[in-house]
Measured scan of single mutants.
Amino acid sequence: IDVRFTVNGLDVTVRVRTEEIAERVKELAKNGVDWREIQRIAEELNK
């Protein structure tokens, strides 16, 4: 599942395995978490 969001004007796409992880990623993006941090968290959750 590809999750797309915009952080500080940057369009970011993170690929995740499940809808649940996708929701977590969207939540982080909404809360203004840095995209590199979101990427790292997504990689952890995908394991």
Rank of each mutant, 00 (worst) to 15 (best):
I38M: 03
W35I: 15
L28Y: 04
V33E: 08
V16F: 01
E23Q: 14
K26F: 05
I21F: 07
R24M: 14
V25G: 00
R24A: 12
V3P: 02
L10W: 06
K30C: 10
E23N: 11
I38E: 00
I38C: 02
E43Q: 10
T18W: 02
V16C: 09
I41Y: 08
T13C: 07
I41K: 04
K47F: 13
E20P: 06
K30I: 11
R40W: 09
V33P: 02
R40Q: 12
V12L: 11
L28F: 05
G9K: 01
W35N: 03
E27V: 08
Q39I: 15
L28M: 12
R17I: 14
V3G: 01
V33S: 07
V3A: 02
R40F: 09
T18K: 02
D2H: 07
V12W: 06
D11A: 12
V14W: 01
A42T: 07
A42K: 01
L28R: 01
G32R: 05
N8C: 08
D2V: 07
D34F: 05
I41S: 03
I1G: 02
I21T: 03
D34M: 05
T6Q: 15
I21Q: 10
I41P: 00
R24C: 10
E43W: 02
R4T: 15
R24H: 12
K30H: 11
D2Q: 05
A22F: 05
D34A: 07
E44A: 11
K47L: 14
D2L: 08
G32L: 11
K26R: 15
V14Q: 01
R36I: 14
Q39D: 05
R15M: 08
R17V: 14
Q39G: 08
F5V: 15
R4P: 04
T6G: 08
V33A: 11
V7P: 04
V33T: 12
I1W: 11
T18M: 02
V12C: 06
E27G: 07
E23P: 00
V33L: 10
L45C: 04
R36M: 15
V14C: 05
L10M: 13
V3N: 01
T13S: 10
D34T: 06
A42L: 10
E27C: 06
W35Y: 13
N46A: 05
I21M: 08
T6H: 15
G9S: 04
V16Q: 00
V14T: 03
E43T: 10
T18D: 09
E20A: 13
R36C: 14
R17D: 08
T6N: 12
V25K: 00
V16I: 03
R15F: 04
I21V: 07
K30N: 12
I21W: 02
R36F: 14
V3Y: 01
D34Q: 07
R40N: 10
G32C: 02
L28I: 06
V12E: 03
N8A: 09
V7I: 13
I21G: 04
L28A: 08
E23G: 10
E19C: 10
R17Y: 10
G32Y: 05
R24P: 00
V33I: 13
K30Q: 13
V33D: 04
I41D: 01
A29I: 15
E43P: 01
V16W: 00
K47I: 14
V3K: 01
K47W: 09
V14R: 00
N31S: 14
D11M: 12
R4F: 12
E37V: 09
T6E: 14
L10C: 09
T13H: 12
V33W: 07
V3M: 06
R24D: 02
E37G: 03
V14I: 15
E23H: 14
N46L: 03
D11I: 15
K30E: 13
Q39E: 11
D11T: 14
V14K: 00
G9V: 01
L45I: 04
E44C: 14
D2K: 07
A22V: 06
V16M: 02
W35S: 08
F5S: 05
K26Y: 05
D34L: 05
V25T: 02
F5T: 09
R36E: 13
L28H: 05
E43V: 09
V12H: 10
L10S: 10
L10K: 12
N31Y: 05
V7W: 06
R15L: 05
K26Q: 10
V7C: 07
R40I: 12
D2W: 06
T6I: 13
W35T: 08
N46E: 05
A42P: 00
D34R: 06
F5E: 04
R24E: 07
N8K: 05
D34H: 09
A42I: 12
T18C: 04
V7A: 11
F5G: 05
I1M: 09
A22Y: 04
G32A: 09
L28P: 00
N8H: 08
G9D: 11
V7E: 15
N8Y: 01
V25I: 13
D11V: 13
N31R: 10
V14N: 00
I1C: 05
T18V: 02
G9W: 01
F5H: 07
R36Y: 12
I1E: 03
N8W: 00
E19P: 13
E19A: 11
T13G: 05
A29D: 03
T13A: 07
T13N: 08
I41N: 02
R17C: 07
V12T: 04
E20C: 11
N46V: 03
D2E: 14
R4A: 12
V12F: 13
A29F: 15
A22H: 04
R4N: 15
E37M: 03
E19M: 14
V14A: 02
R40P: 01
E27F: 04
E19L: 11
K26C: 09
E44I: 12
D2A: 04
N46P: 03
L10I: 15
D2N: 06
L45G: 04
N46I: 02
V14S: 00
A42M: 08
N8E: 12
N31G: 09
I38G: 00
L10F: 11
W35F: 14
R40Y: 10
V7N: 10
R4Y: 09
V16Y: 00
N8M: 06
I38L: 08
R17A: 15
K30F: 10
E20K: 12
V33H: 09
G32Q: 09
I1D: 01
E27D: 12
E43I: 10
Q39S: 09
A29M: 11
E23K: 12
T18H: 03
A29H: 12
A22W: 03
T6W: 05
A42D: 01
I38Q: 00
I41H: 06
T6S: 10
D11C: 10
G32N: 11
K47R: 13
L45E: 06
N31Q: 15
A42C: 06
R36N: 15
A42E: 01
N31I: 13
I38V: 08
